[in-house]
């Protein structure tokens, strides 16, 4: 039935759309010149991993280093987007240039995504100090956190001095994303016990600030007590406990205190140095892992070796362990490099 509709719509003259006439160089130069369109375009092309993206990031990297990156995570419904919006507004009031990366999951079925975090950020859409970018997880193997890092760097190069990365704290990918931040806020809400659930799920170690949002609802004190108790239990002697703050994004309460806490954190503490080392190591390894994997995979696919081995496994019942070690041996010639 749809044919006649398609006919109706397809024969019309199609307008030109996005042209890819911008070179990487001109986009990076545009970012430096604070051209918003250039930044948005560069982000797209880097996120798409278009050929040449790594060279572009090499050009971007020297322009970065002045931004602080704050991660915001928590369970669905905790009010992260509203809180992000309020924090951004508060930071702009204090003279900052803010970039926001809002991450939502891609559909595992279609690869598409419904990116709706902006729904809660309407009032900052037209503030020139704020740039918001919605990002889908796109099912990239460990690639999401790298892509988020890249986007944050482009925003940094543009001149955003604070970057907020907002993501749901479920799923390993999303947790990896907030780990790329300098400081991580964990958002809980009264009543549902979800906050505590998330803590158990392993976000506990990475959060630097705990926030009880919607604190005007009944049960806020209970959640606060729960969190404090947990932090006390797991703290090591002499280690300062992370702050636990109450906010209400809806009523704009506690936002200023939260901003104080975020900004007061002295840069360059020993903990920070350690964190930066961990992050650097992870980034190097993840980029390398990605490149090595891609190189090997494409070689196997192109040579037909992968197809052949798949058939052997299915038809001849060959074990996958041997398949992999043999294939790796062929590439390297040295079994000991890949054997473990």
């Amino acid at each position: 039935m749809t044919e006649n509709f398609f006919l109706r719509f397809m024969d019309i003259h199609i307008k030109k759309t996005k042209t890819a006439d911008h070179s990487w160089e001109s986009l990076v130069a545009g970012v430096q010149a604070r051209n918003i369109r250039a930044m948005a375009r560069l982000i797209t092309r880097v996120e798409n991993r278009e050929p040449g993206w790594k060279e572009a990031m090499k050009a971007v990297y020297p322009l970065t280093g002045s931004a602080r990156i704050f991660g915001i995570t928590g369970s669905p419904g905790a009010g992260k987007s509203s809180l992000t919006c309020e924090i951004a507004e508060e930071l702009v009031k204090r003279g900052h240039q803010v970039g926001i990366i809002a991450v939502d999951p891609s559909s595992p079925f279609s690869g598409g995504a419904l990116l709706g975090d902006r729904l809660r950020m309407k009032k900052i859409f037209t503030m020139k100090e704020i740039f918001i970018r919605s990002m889908a997880t796109r099912g990239m193997l460990g690639g999401l956190s790298q892509a988020a890092r890249d986007v944050a760097r482009i925003m940094d190069a543009f001149g955003k001095d604070i970057i907020l990365i907002e993501t749901v704290g479920v799923g390993q990918d999303e947790i990896e994303v907030v780990k790329t931040a300098d400081r991580v806020m964990m958002v809980c809400i009264p009543g549902q016990g979800d906050g505590i659930q998330a803590l158990k799920a392993g976000v506990m170690e990475i959060a630097d600030i705990y926030i009880i949002n919607k604190a005007d609802l009944p049960g806020a004190d209970e959640v606060m007590a729960d969190i404090c108790a947990m932090l006390n239990l797991s703290s090591q002697n002499g280690q300062a406990l992370p702050p636990v703050l109450k906010t209400s994004a809806l009523k704009n309460q506690g936002i200023s205190e939260l901003a104080d806490s975020l900004l007061s954190h002295p840069a360059g503490s020993s903990k920070d140095t350690l964190r930066r080392e961990i992050q650097a190591r992870e980034e190097i390894l993840s980029l390398m892992e990605n490149d090595v994997f891609r190189a090997i995979r494409s070689r196997w696919e192109q040579s037909g070796a992968l197809t052949a081995e798949v058939r052997k496994m299915v038809e001849e019942n060959k074990d996958p362990y041997s398949i992999v070690s043999e294939l790796l041996q062929q590439i390297d010639g040295k079994a000991d490099l890949f054997s473990s």
Binding site: S110, G112, L114, R118, K122
Partner: peptide, 16 residues
């Protein structure tokens, strides 16, 4: 459009 594989940004009501 999401199910057609697009990334859809939805901003809700009352947009200027």
């Amino acid at each position: 459009l999401r199910d057609a594989g697009f990334e859809v940004i939805y901003t809700g009501l009352r947009q200027t």
